[in-house]
Computed example of a mutant assay.
Amino acid sequence: MKKAILFFVFTGLALSQCKAQFLGGFFNQQSTKRKIMAEQIADLEIYQQALKKGYHIAESGLNTAHDLKNGTFGLHTAYFNSLEQVNRVVANDPKGKAILDLQTELISLFDKEIAWQQKEKLLQVSELDYIQDVYNNLLNECKKNIDELNLVLTPGKMQLTDQQRLERLDHLYNSMKDKYTFAGDFIAKCRKIALNRQQAIKEKEQLKELYGIQ
């Protein structure tokens, strides 16, 4: 009888210990799972915060890049707009007026010479036509210079620095001066040919009178 009682007592104790171990292990496992889940949730929150922060930085970076781009574009636009303006120093440069004066004088030289040649009739028709052709070609070249001069001196037409505009004026002035110099030399030669013929005609008439040749 005592053995039976002891058997049940020991068996009960063993079952109690097993149950305690089982329940303890179960609760320990649940506690560990909760701990792991809590850590995962914490990690997820940290990740989301980092993601939001990263997105914010990226967004700010894009905005900054956009602002910088717009700012740089604005600077470039302002710079090129400034190149389209004509400084007073350029506008008041005497070479601008000198170019126009040279063209006017060139036209006057040719107009007077052609009128005189037509009146005196010392040159042949083909020679007069040649003079007119040279005159027309020079006028066309002068027009190109004047057109460029207007571009250089008119705001909004060309994107040039003040120095570049002044250099263009120098080039146009020298080009027009060369045309005027050529025109003067050409007309002088035409006049000389005509005067030589005039002199030859006079000498011929004098010889006729001298020798009584009709």
Rank of each mutant, 00 (worst) to 15 (best):
I5Y: 04
F10V: 09
T32S: 11
L210E: 11
G212L: 08
Q21W: 15
K144E: 06
Q21V: 05
K95T: 00
L51F: 06
E59F: 12
Y55G: 08
L123G: 14
E141D: 07
E141C: 00
K2L: 07
E148D: 12
P155W: 03
N140M: 01
L102Q: 10
K119V: 06
F22S: 11
K2I: 04
A4L: 06
Q117A: 09
T104S: 04
K112S: 14
D133L: 13
A14C: 05
K189G: 09
Q124L: 15
S31E: 07
K202E: 08
F80Y: 04
G96D: 03
Q118I: 05
R168F: 07
G184P: 01
A14Q: 07
S60E: 09
I5E: 09
I57W: 11
H66Y: 02
V90Q: 00
H76Y: 11
S31F: 08
K19F: 05
K144W: 02
L106C: 08
N145D: 13
G96N: 12
L139W: 00
A14Y: 02
A50I: 15
H171W: 03
D67A: 08
A188M: 11
D133F: 06
K112R: 13
F27H: 15
E39T: 00
M158R: 10
N81W: 01
F186D: 10
N87C: 01
L6A: 05
K121F: 00
L83A: 01
I57V: 10
P155N: 10
T11K: 03
S31A: 10
K144F: 01
A188E: 13
Q85K: 10
K144A: 07
A188I: 06
S31H: 15
Q40E: 02
L6E: 07
A183Y: 14
K33H: 01
N28W: 10
T181D: 03
R88E: 05
N87M: 04
E205P: 07
Q159L: 09
M158D: 04
Y180D: 11
N87K: 01
K192E: 11
N150W: 12
I5T: 00
H171N: 09
D178H: 10
T64I: 02
I193V: 13
K144P: 04
L195C: 04
Y130P: 15
L109H: 14
Q29H: 08
Q117W: 05
K3F: 05
T64W: 02
F80Q: 03
I107E: 08
T77M: 07
D162C: 00
E113D: 13
M176W: 00
Y180E: 04
L153D: 03
L100F: 09
A183K: 03
R197H: 00
N196R: 04
Q198G: 11
A58D: 15
N145K: 03
R34W: 09
I36F: 02
H56A: 14
S108D: 12
